[in-house]
């Protein structure tokens, strides 16, 4: 049984590319600046932006997509996401400077946490 599972596992294709450590570090850095308004549970926004070679936001942050909540909720959620991105720059310290092509364009999906009942 275990052997059969093992063989099946081998048969599965390997993930194309594992998450490199620096994406985790990048995520952690943005996360630390994000004030996730508790009132926005169920709202999801995707913020898109470009980074220059020093890891600074180039141009401004755009709203790619939003789900859940009212339009006002989505506007607030995006404003909070944008603030997080802007506030925590520059990001060069956590990004590999020899792989600019991989992080020149970024789309961050902010999932506002659903809070448990008290």
């Amino acid at each position: 049984m275990i052997r059969a599972l093992f063989l099946m596992t081998l048969a599965l294709p390997l993930p194309a590319k594992a998450d490199p450590d620096w994406t985790q570090a990048f995520r952690a850095k943005v996360q630390a600046c994000w004030l996730a308004d508790p009132a926005l549970a169920h709202v999801k926004v995707v913020a898109g932006f470009d980074l220059d070679t020093t890891g600074r936001v180039e141009g401004d942050v755009s709203l790619v997509r939003a789900d859940g909540g009212t339009l006002a909720d989505q506007a607030r959620a995006f404003a909070a996401a944008r603030r997080a991105v802007v506030r925590c720059q520059p990001y060069l310290a956590v990004l590999p400077d020899d792989q600019y092509a991989l992080w020149h364009k970024v789309e961050l999906t902010f999932v506002f946490p659903v809070t448990p009942s008290s």
Partner: peptide, 19 residues
């Protein structure tokens, strides 16, 4: 400039802190 699509990351652990 990028060869592939944008870097996509999901963030779901913000600071639960008021503005």
């Amino acid at each position: 400039l990028a060869q592939s699509g944008p870097l996509r990351i999901t963030i779901d652990q913000g600071i639960m802190e008021p503005l």
